[in-house]
């Protein structure tokens, strides 16, 4: 569809550090202009265009709002598509992944709700640290490999926090 750059759509300079409140405000302004509700009495063609514009605006917003998605998008912007599934050589992190997962399994076995809370807080701190590291190196070509590694770590933690939510749901009976 030849979509314009997500950052340009929100008139932002490509950067990992994004003011989320500001992003949300701009999203609402733009959504006001293109949402299909504005075209409920317009021609079919206009309705279809509004649908397409709104869908791509929503997609852009979701991408920029979520840290790992934003990171992946930034890395891909230079034309270097980052493969979705690759065998990652990151032994240090691999070890940590296994530790996180084991802990999560223990929490499930013991149905330890207080433990889940502590786990969530630690996870959040780890995510913030990763974000900081990524922000410091993503636009340095010399550190490209490191940036990709950090982005994959972010993705893993994102998935892990989803699993924590699922665990909370299972424990909530």
């Amino acid at each position: 569809m030849g979509t314009p750059c997500h950052f340009a759509l929100f008139e932002l300079k490509p950067s990992f550090r994004v003011d989320l409140d500001q992003l949300a405000t701009r999203y609402r302004e733009l959504a006001r202009g293109v949402h299909p509700d504005r075209f409920a009495d317009a021609s079919e063609r206009e309705q279809r265009l509004a649908l397409e514009h709104s869908a791509s605006l929503n997609d852009a917003y979701q991408t920029l709002k979520n840290a790992p998605k934003r990171a992946r998008y930034l890395l891909a912007m230079g034309g270097n598509e980052v493969a979705l599934e690759v065998t990652v050589h990151d032994p240090e992190f691999l070890l940590q992944q296994m530790q996180w997962r084991e802990e999560l399994e223990d929490l499930q076995d013991e149905a330890d709700l207080a433990g889940v809370e502590v786990f969530k807080r630690r996870l959040k701190v780890a995510q913030e640290e990763l974000n900081e590291s990524f922000a410091a190196c993503w636009d340095d070509a010399a550190q490209r490999e490191q940036a990709e590694r950090l982005m994959r770590r972010m993705q893993f933690l994102d998935k892990l926090s989803y699993e924590v939510r699922q665990l909370e749901e299972r424990l909530d009976d």
């Binding site: 008139e11 317009a42 206009e46 514009h53």
Partner: peptide, 25 residues
């Protein structure tokens, strides 16, 4: 009539996006 107004419709929609951006500036 719907056909001949197609391009006009597309332009209007693009300009709403631009207007939203301009308003913010």
């Amino acid at each position: 009539l719907s056909q001949v107004t197609d391009a006009f419709a597309a332009r209007r929609l693009d300009s709403t996006v631009k207007a939203a951006l301009a308003g913010r500036n």
